[in-house]
Design a protein around this nucleic acid. Structure first.
Lengths: 120, 120
DNA sequence: AACTTCTTCAACCAGATGGTTGACCACGGG
DNA sequence: CCCGTGGTCAACCATCTGGTTGAAGAAGTT
């Protein structure tokens, strides 16, 4: 439970129910009961899901009478996006470089494309 | 284990070791033994991690003599990025709209901007 | 003060997860 | 042919996770 922030965010979104909750919170804030309605699990289970999302910083809960409206904190998405983009870009960059190497291959017979394989 | 693709990808990246493996594969393909070297866990454990990454479609393993070079499939990142961006955008849009509503508040005494507003 | 509503806490349970050890399979090199 | 190397499979273990039920806290309503 004491994992790094990135792990918590990824882990929180690794559950379909929690992703659905996030999707609905993107439209409007909602109470725990509202959020629990569509699913056939108990309210307590949804409360637990919200705790996971809250620990990940994806959601915040305020107080309003006996209700606890849940609010989506979209800015935490940045953490993930940055991580993802970094390695995606890096991988693509590497791919591009490999292409260059292949294209500039000095002692290649005649651009050995996969289609015209040497017949054993 | 039979979860939807998005859950598998998020879940796969919810582990620091696996994220580190992805980070290293973004630089260059590597064998299981190479990948296992830096961590103080057994090679079998790393092999399991790779299986998780493979099931998520983040990684592919080819055959080359007795070695099994692991390759990063960066395109699967798109799945996540799309999901994230969608709801981030939606949440920001909602935020913006709320701002508009507040700004256009008809029966407001004198344009209650956040700075000078009496926040209840 | 008593009651109802919204929510969380606590204890429990089944199944997934991350790790271990030990055996095994697939190669290439003597 | 046998052996060393690279990798996986199988069984086992501790812990985490998502769900349940039951009780309790917090804040309005009557």
């Amino acid at each position: 439970m004491a994992a790094d922030p990135l792990s918590r965010v990824f882990s929180a979104l690794a559950d379909p129910t929690r992703r659905d909750i996030v999707a609905r919170l993107a439209v409007a804030d909602a109470t725990v009961n509202d959020l629990a309605a569509p699913y056939d699990v108990t309210v307590q289970a949804v409360s637990k899901h919200l705790k996971v999302l809250e620990d990940a910083g994806l959601v915040s809960r305020s107080r309003e009478a006996q209700r606890r409206p849940v609010h989506l904190e979209a800015n935490v998405f940045d953490l993930m996006t940055k991580w993802i983009e970094r390695y995606r870009r890096q991988a693509e960059e590497r791919y591009r470089r490999l292409d260059d190497v292949l294209r500039a291959m000095p002692d290649a017979p005649a651009t050995p494309s996969p289609q015209e394989g040497t017949p054993s």
